[in-house]
């Protein structure tokens, strides 16, 4: 029986091994390579997607458990050619380096800010415990996130 779910707003049906990680479905079957296969054990966060509105590592989600779920990847996060406020802040603060961790960072921080509109520095850091960046040393990413907060407050 095919597994049916919504991917970036479209209904899809998959007839594949239900143990296949969502990550591989995204990358290999749908060409959605924004989610990166880095650690495949839930520690790095580079494959983070939204499932039913929650930011989770797609490497640890077998497709067979996602019947009826709503999956959004970084490609489906915003309309083509537009950026959300997290992405815009990262550009404005010039925080990107190699870039591999950023799609996951964006996914994690987008839902985090929805639930915590005015975080402090420590709260942002706690939210990023599962998103590793090897290039930037984090602090400028956090500055960028906090700039969103201060804009919201003002």
């Amino acid at each position: 029986m095919p597994i049916e779910l919504t991917l970036n707003g479209e209904s899809i049906a998959l007839d594949i091994d239900p143990r296949t990680p969502l990550l591989d479905v995204l990358r290999d079957r749908h060409g959605l390579t924004g989610a990166k296969a880095v650690c495949r054990e839930g520690f790095c966060g580079a494959c983070t997607v939204h499932i039913d509105g929650q930011a989770v590592p797609s490497c640890l989600r077998p497709i067979g458990l996602l019947q009826g779920c709503n999956v959004v990847t970084v490609e489906g996060l915003t309309a083509p050619g537009t950026l959300n406020r997290v992405q815009q802040a990262f550009i404005d603060h010039d925080v990107v380096q190699c870039g591999m961790c950023f799609p996951g960072m964006v996914m994690t921080l987008t839902t985090f800010l929805d639930g915590t509109p005015n975080p402090n520095r420590d709260e942002v850091k706690s939210a990023l415990v599962g998103n590793i960046c090897r290039c930037t040393g984090y602090e400028r990413i956090i500055d960028a996130v906090l700039s969103i907060r201060s804009e919201g407050v003002a």
Binding site: P57, L60, S126
Partner: peptide, 9 residues
């Protein structure tokens, strides 16, 4: 435990 993403699943 672990990290926020894992704690959600």
């Amino acid at each position: 435990s672990a990290n926020p993403g894992i704690r959600r699943i």
